[in-house]
Amino acid sequence: MFYRPEDGHGLKHNPFNAVVTPRPIGWISTRDSDGSENLAPYSFFNAVAYVPPQVMFASTSAKPDRDGTKDSVANIRETGVFCVNIVEYAMREAMNLTSGPWPREIDEFEKAGIERVPCEEIPCSRVASAPASLECRMTEIVTLRGEANFLVLGEVVGVHLRDDCLEDGMFNVLKFQPLTRLGYRDYSRITEVFSLKRPGE
Score class of each variant (00 low, 15 high):
Asn38Glu: 01
Leu39Asn: 04
Gly100Arg: 14
Thr191Ser: 09
Val48Ala: 05
Asn96Tyr: 09
Phe45Leu: 03
Arg66Cys: 13
Cys119Ile: 05
Lys197Pro: 04
Asp71Cys: 07
Phe16Ile: 15
Gly80Leu: 00
Leu166Thr: 07
Pro123Arg: 14
Gly183Pro: 00
Leu196Ile: 12
Gly146Phe: 04
Phe44Trp: 13
Ala49Pro: 01
Ala18Glu: 00
Val73Asn: 01
Thr180Val: 15
Ser72Tyr: 06
Arg162Cys: 05
Thr69Gly: 05
Ala40Asn: 12
Lys63Asn: 10
Val152Ala: 10
Asp65Thr: 00
Val142Lys: 12
Gly26Leu: 07
Ser61Val: 09
Arg189Asn: 07
Glu201Met: 06
Phe171Arg: 04
Leu39Thr: 00
Phe176Lys: 00
Ile122Lys: 00
Tyr42Pro: 01
Trp27Cys: 06
Leu179Asp: 01
Ala74Arg: 14
Thr191Arg: 08
Pro199Leu: 06
Val51His: 13
Asp168His: 13
Gly169Met: 11
Glu6Arg: 09
Gly183Ile: 02
Ser195Val: 09
Met91Ala: 15
Ser188Leu: 03
Asp32Ser: 01
Ser36Asn: 15
Gln54His: 11
Val159Lys: 02
Phe44Glu: 02
Lys197Asp: 14
His160Gln: 08
Met170Ile: 11
Glu93Gln: 12
Phe109Arg: 01
Ala58Asp: 03
Pro22Gly: 05
Glu201Arg: 05
Glu192Met: 12
Tyr42Lys: 01
Gly113Pro: 13
Met95Gly: 03
Ser61His: 15
